[in-house]
Structure formats: C-alpha cells, structure tokens
Design a protein around this nucleic acid. Structure first.
Lengths: 110, 110
DNA sequence: TTGACATATTCCGATATGGGAATATGATTA
DNA sequence: TAATCATATTCCCATATCGGAATATGTCAA
C-alpha cells in the first residue's frame, strides 16, 4: 500500500498548501474558476484538479451558471479538523502556563 | 514533482490516521514505544517509522531512559492547524444559523 | 562477553501524487 | 454552424509513500 489518497478525507485533501489557499479564497463568497486562477496565479488545469479533489471530499460545493462554474468552500467540512485539533487545546494551554510560570520565576531572580 | 513529503509540515504529517492515533495516545503523558505498539496494535517497525515523521516535524519530543525511548506529544505543534481551521469557524456558524432558520420556518408551515 | 530486550533502519514493491503540456468537453455568441 | 470562451481531462514523469520482512543498533543483565 502507498500513502492514502488525497481524496480519502479532509485531512489528506488539506495537506496540500495550494488547496488550503483555494479554500481560504472561496470561503467568503463563491467564485468562478478563472477568479481563482487570476488571484492565486496558478495554471488553470492545476486549479481544476485541486477543485476536483476538494469537491470529492465535500470541502467545496459547485454551481454552474452558463459556462462558468462557481465554487464555494463548505466550511462545515472543515469542522472535523477543527474538532480534532481542539482535543489538544488544554495541553498547549498547560505548556503555556508552565512557560509563563518559569518566566515569572526568572524575573523574581533577576 | 510529487506530493509534498510527510515531513514537510504538520498538515502532511497529520494526514496519516495512525499518526493521529499516536498523537492522541501520547498527549496525556509520555510513553515508551512498546506501549504504543501494545495499545494501538501496530507492528513495532511501523510505530518507529511514524514516530520518526512526527519527530521531524516537531509533533513529538523524545527522552531516552536506558533502552527505552519515551515519546510525548508536543501539543504546541498542533496549534497552527487549529488556528488555520479557526479562520473558517464564523462561516460554519453562519451555515448553522441559516439551517436553523430554515428549520424553524418549516416548523411554522407544518 | 554473551544473550536478551527495546527500538531503529533498510530493502522491497505497489501505488498515488502534482506539475507541465496538450487536448477535450461544454456552453455561448456571431 | 463556426468561432470563442470557461473549465475539465488525459498523458507522462519523477518522487515519496506505507506496509512487510529482515536486520541493525544500542543498552542492560547474567
């Protein structure tokens, strides 16, 4: 077996930086493909391929209007990632507390 | 070019489900490799390889004690993922609001 | 020093990737 | 219908992956 497919879930789809850029760009409002091409400065076929991956895992939705395809980020599909990372939140808070305490202890010394 | 290396950043490292399992397991307290092997039921070489990836991107720390290696999740390295997903939070909130409003409208109809 | 234990590395093969270039499909307009 | 615009797909290639199996490294104990 090789690495899991990029279309296997949101975690894999989002590992590619360009796809994260696209998601950020499409979250405020839907946009035709050419807007993405122009704004991110990527070759059009590349954008289409990335959009296909994002579509397959449900990270974007599409709507056709004439010959244009309007894509929009489906923010809901990002929630699982957010929730997974949230389970670690209390631990980095812990770390911060310890770092802070150490810093304060050092200030008392000096 | 091919897909970015799994060691290129936390996003890529975390795309692999086993590595997420390992991070969850190691977050509460440090553990020797054999504990991971036993708890997750993975072959030992596989665990060592995954730990190497996690170590390279700073998602875990190690400490040696005799012949054992104690690994622990570095929660701080997960923050970038959390922060990136957080930028989408207001948008799924929006969606929820719209869905809720629609549901309530439907209740009035029925 | 030898053996046992804990962990890491190497070699292999099948597979999917993303970029580039070319081209196909689909829809509109002249 | 032909030309044009917007987007999608295909082909090729270099590369890195993960799993499995075998083996290496490193540390401790007898």
């Amino acid at each position: 077996m090789a690495r899991a497919s990029t279309t296997s879930d949101a975690f894999n789809a989002v590992a590619e930086p360009r796809r994260r850029d696209i998601l950020s760009f499409l979250v405020a409002q839907e946009r035709p493909v050419n807007d993405i091409v122009a704004s991110l400065g990527l070759p059009q076929p590349s954008v289409s391929k990335h959009l296909r991956v994002l579509l397959e895992v449900g990270l974007v939705d599409v709507r056709r209007d004439g010959r244009q395809m309007f894509y929009r980020t489906n923010a809901n599909a990002i929630r699982p990632l957010h929730e997974w990372t949230s389970t670690f939140e209390r631990y980095w808070r812990h770390q911060l507390t310890r770092i802070k305490e150490r810093a304060e202890a050092n200030e008392l010394q000096s």
